[in-house]
């Protein structure tokens, strides 16, 4: 086992995010199982093979919903400094991302309906690249807002062309 020589980011996220990941996994499982289940109910001659497919999809989905949220929670960490935003995420494939402050274009916080229910928020940091935005999921809303404001403030002070 060889790990990369980056230290983990300093902050963990709210435990409640495990519930959000679990819900998302269950919704995904339900969607994936919907097609074979519908075929099983509507089309009797297909039951010999749609039955096993539906069972397999449900079993894998439930396993995913049971295992990955806590795994993600154990991995998920974040940190902001005066120079960069540093986020670790993932489960089977771990993912460390560093976005320097001088390249940040926008800093947003976003809260979906379920996130609002659970009292968590997501910090979204956008840079000018096709790599996509950096997401920090599962922050307490006031922490997310304070970090966003702080990042925007640092970015304003930092010379850079955001490219």
């Amino acid at each position: 086992m060889t790990s990369i020589s980056l230290r983990p980011p300093r902050h963990r996220v709210q435990r409640r995010v495990v519930a959000w990941w679990t819900l998302r996994a269950l919704c995904g499982t339900a969607l994936a199982a919907a097609a074979p289940l519908a075929a099983w109910f509507l089309w009797e001659s297909s039951r010999t093979w749609t039955g096993p497919v539906a069972v397999a999809v449900l079993a894998l989905g439930l396993l995913y919903a049971a295992v990955t949220p806590s795994w993600r929670y154990a991995v998920h960490r974040w940190e902001t400094t005066d120079e960069a935003v540093f986020v670790a995420a993932g489960w089977f494939v771990r993912d460390w991302r560093i976005a320097p402050i001088s390249r940040i274009q926008t800093v947003d916080t976003s809260r979906g309906p379920i996130e609002q229910l659970l009292g968590i928020a997501t910090l979204v940091v956008t840079t000018a690249s096709a790599g996509g935005a950096v997401h920090v999921r599962g922050l307490a809303p006031d922490v997310a807002r304070a970090s966003a404001e702080q990042l925007a403030e640092i970015t304003r002070r930092t010379p850079g062309d955001a490219t």
Partner: peptide, 13 residues
Amino acid sequence: MTAEYTSPAVPPP
């Protein structure tokens, strides 16, 4: 997803 808060982080032109 609702964006409730946005701060343009690019320095003012």
